[in-house]
Design a binder for these strands. Structure first.
Lengths: 212, 212
DNA sequence: TAGATTGTTAATCGATTAACAATC
DNA sequence: TAGATTGTTAATCGATTAACAATC
């Protein structure tokens, strides 16, 4: 039974499903039951069937799920074939790491440009991508509407950069700054945060309080 | 009423509490009520009082919470003053970004060393930290027991590296590889994952399906 | 056909929200 | 004292798990 409103708990599991199904697919597995997938992912079979049934019935009684088909369905649900585009704001260490090492294409995104203010960088290319001056962001976005902006800028310009992206019609911001963006004011824009510090502090708690 | 088993939902909110309290503290705010904090964080006052009451009663009726004290209590709960140490495995782009830019000290961790296999890097220093050869990891950990290992190695050596860390007594692994580590086999080790791809795919879903 | 496994409904569990007595 | 706000208990809501008829 398709649901209209998908809970964020389900959404956050989808990429993991995709990753596991992709591994199975590449390993040559043709079919898998919810219980086998559950076991390898550390979930319950019930949960997997519930999660998938939010989007449709992809399995077959007595058989299970066809790995290739389910992988493709999950990719479709995640929007991996929508031709999303992305640009990177801030070509410091982290920005460069993403430009040179993150597999945007494999995840359905085309990296079109990076922006920075450093005169040494502007005008050069990195990993096949041109580095433009931040001052040209608005005109670039006017000519090249882009789905997502990646924020790898210094914290002090994070909010300002987010506003500029939002006002130019970007639909998503992938925020690597440790700053909480004013999401309510960034209308029409979805924000996904990668807060390194929050993540490390969670680990700090776990190793401080709870022995495994 | 102190609870013995804290849910992971609460734990994941603690770093955000810390961040907001730290901002308030630096901004000179002396006291804050649960409802004021809730408003600025987008939570409910009830939830904040419930969360904090897992660890003790830090407020005062009719007054609210003393910002400096609550900030210190949350820092304590998170284990920020335990003298945790950290080393980085893999000094590629991402490893370097963390070494040079991530404020380990501010988050209660002391970065003691980085490890890599590149002859060009081994023996040099980066951001004040020595880069050692991966072959010397075990002997280093024998002489310098370390709390946490950061995995910024290539995916193909991620599991092997995690096992080596685990067998040398590390208590936490901060995993930046897009590989699912065999946590059950890493006994005594807590794993915190930063899966860039999962995060981007979540954003991909949000901009594909749900208009804000 | 018999066995396996789905999709879905019902039951349980846990987390969030509401309410309020206690008290600063 | 009166007003404000906590900590905690109770109510609600939502997510996970269990059960099972449907069916390949």
């Amino acid at each position: 039974m398709r649901k209209e409103k998908i809970s964020s708990a389900v959404i956050r599991r989808l990429p993991r499903y995709y990753r596991h199904l992709d591994d199975l697919y590449r390993g040559g597995t043709v079919r898998i039951s919810s219980s086998a997938l559950a076991k390898s992912m550390g979930l319950t079979a019930s949960q997997i069937r519930q999660d998938l049934s939010c989007f449709g019935g992809f399995g077959q009684q007595g058989y299970g799920y066809n790995v290739e088909r389910l992988r493709a369905e999950v990719a479709e649900i995640l929007g991996m074939h929508r031709g999303h585009t992305v640009l990177i704001l801030g070509a410091g260490n982290l920005g460069r790491a993403l430009i040179e090492n993150f597999p945007f294409a494999i995840n359905g995104f085309r990296l079109v440009a990076a922006f920075d203010v450093s005169p040494a960088l502007v005008g050069t290319r990195l990993g096949g991508v041109p580095i433009c001056h931040m001052d040209t962001l608005e005109s670039f976005l006017r000519d090249n509407p882009t789905s997502v902006g990646v924020l790898t800028v210094p914290a002090r310009v994070a909010v300002e950069s987010a506003r500029r992206l939002a006002s130019c019609g970007v639909t998503g911001i992938w925020n690597f700054t440790n700053v909480e963006l004013p999401e309510r004011e960034l209308s029409g824009v979805r924000v996904e945060n990668v807060h390194f510090a929050d993540s490390l502090l969670t680990l700090s708690y776990m190793i401080s309080e709870e022995p495994v």
